[in-house]
Design a protein around this nucleic acid. Structure first.
Length: 329
DNA sequence: AAATGTGGCAACCGCCTGCTA
DNA sequence: TTAGCAGGCGGTTGCCACATT
C-alpha cells in the first residue's frame, strides 16, 4: 500500500541552513550522489526533511550553479522564454545553464518584472501597458496621422511624443513650416530633424519612461476632435519612423529586438496567458476594430497591470537592440 | 543615531503528476 | 486496481541588509 512517508516532519529542523549542514550534505552527495532524498537526511546525519535537502542542493549547493549577477544575454533569454513559456521557471532554467528555476523566478519577480513595468510593458502579456492613459484622446485627435504616430512609437518613447506635441503646438500657433497637411510625406523628416536637433537619438536611456508622464504629456495636446484612425496610415508613419530610428541606432523596425517581441491582441487571452509570439502585423487592421477600451483608471493594481492586452494590435512597440536595463533606471 | 521603509533572496508551502507497493 | 508517497514545480513568506527619513 503505497510508500512510507519520506520523513517524519516532527522534530526536523527548518529555516536557514548552517555551513555545517551544507558541508554534511555536500560530502554525502559527493560520495553517494544525489537522489533517494527520503533516506539522505538520515544517512547524512541531517535533521532535515528530504525535500528540504533536495531544495538546498538543487538551488544552492550544486557545483554547476552559476552565482552572481545575470548578464544582459541571460536577461534577454529569460524575457524571450517567459514570453513563450510563461511562469514555467523550470523550463526556462533548462535553457539557462547554471541557473536554477528558483533563482530565475526570484530574478524575474524582483528585477525584470519591475523593469518591464517601468518601461510600460505588461510583464504578463509582454505587451505595452497603457494603464492610466485616456485612450479616447488618441482616437479623438484632429491630427489623424500624428495621433497615429503618437499611438505607436510615442507610447514607448515620450521624447518622440514631446516632439510630436511640439509640432501640434506649432501648428496651433500657425507655424506654416510644420503644416500638418504634409505629415504623411514630410512628418517623419520633420520629426527626424527635431530629433536630431534635440539629440534625442543619442539618448537611448531616456527612451522609456513612466506612463503617467506620458499621460501628462498627452493631456497637453490641445484641440482634439473626433476623426477616424487609419491603422494603415499609422503603419506608414511608423515604418518611416522605424527606418529613421534604425539609422545608426538601436531600433528595429517591426519590433522585436528581444527577438520577436511583438504580439497582437487577438492572441492574448483574457486571463493574460501567453499564447504565441512571432506574430506578424497582418492582424492589426482587423484587431483594431474589436477593441473595448475600458481603461481601468480606478481598478486594482493587478487589473492595471494586466490591462492593455486589448490594445496590442493597435500598435507595435519596440525595444532597443542593445538596451541595457540598468541604463534605464 | 534610531526608526521605518524597501528590496533581494533563500526557503517553505501546497498542489500536481507519476510511480510503487 | 488504487491508495498514498516522492519528486517536481510555482507561489508565497519571512528574514536580512541596505536605504531613507
Amino acid at each position: 500500500m503505497g510508500r512510507t512517508p519520506c520523513c517524519d516532519k516532527n522534530g526536523l529542523k527548518k529555516g536557514p541552513w548552517t555551513p555545517e549542514e551544507d558541508q554534511k550534505l555536500i560530502q554525502y552527495i559527493q560520495v553517494h550522489g544525489p537522489g533517494n532524498w527520503r533516506n539522505l537526511p538520515k544517512n547524512a546525519g541531517l535533521q532535515r526533511c528530504g525535500k528540504s535537502c533536495r531544495l538546498r542542493w538543487t538551488n544552492y549547493l550544486r557545483p554547476d550553479i552559476r552565482r552572481g549577477r545575470f548578464s544582459f544575454e541571460e536577461e534577454e533569454t529569460i524575457i524571450q522564454l517567459h514570453s513563450v513559456l510563461g511562469n514555467k521557471w523550470s523550463a526556462i532554467a533548462e535553457r539557462l545553464p547554471g541557473r536554477t528555476d528558483n533563482e530565475i523566478k526570484n530574478y524575474w519577480n524582483t528585477h525584470i518584472r519591475k523593469r518591464l513595468l517601468r518601461m510600460g510593458i505588461d510583464p504578463v502579456t509582454h505587451s505595452p501597458r497603457l494603464d492610466f492613459l485616456d485612450l479616447s484622446l488618441l482616437f479623438n485627435s484632429t491630427q489623424l496621422n500624428l495621433s497615429g504616430l503618437l499611438g505607436l512609437q510615442a507610447l514607448v518613447n515620450p521624447e518622440i511624443f514631446k516632439l510630436a506635441n511640439s509640432i501640434l503646438l506649432s501648428q496651433t500657433h500657425e507655424n506654416q513650416e510644420l503644416s500638418l497637411q504634409n505629415q504623411n510625406s514630410q512628418g517623419p523628416e520633420l520629426l527626424l530633424q527635431k530629433l536630431q536637433q534635440n539629440q534625442l537619438l543619442h539618448n537611448q536611456s531616456s527612451i522609456f519612461q513612466h506612463n503617467d508622464q506620458l499621460h501628462n504629456q498627452i493631456s497637453k495636446v490641445p484641440n482634439y476632435t473626433p476623426q477616424n484612425v487609419s491603422s494603415s496610415s499609422s503603419q506608414s508613419i511608423q515604418g518611416n519612423m522605424g527606418s529613421y530610428l534604425m539609422n545608426g541606432q538601436a531600433f528595429h523596425e517591426n519590433v522585436i529586438s528581444l527577438q520577436n517581441y511583438s504580439y497582437s491582441a487577438s492572441e492574448v487571452s483574457e486571463n493574460s496567458t501567453i499564447q504565441s509570439l512571432n506574430n506578424n502585423n497582418n492582424n492589426n487592421n482587423q484587431n483594431s476594430q474589436n477593441f473595448s477600451f475600458d481603461t481601468p483608471l480606478s481598478g486594482t493594481e493587478e487589473e492595471k497591470e494586466s490591462y492593455c492586452s486589448n490594445f496590442n494590435s493597435f500598435m507595435k512597440f519596440e525595444i532597443p537592440e542593445s538596451l541595457d536595463f540598468d541604463d534605464l533606471l
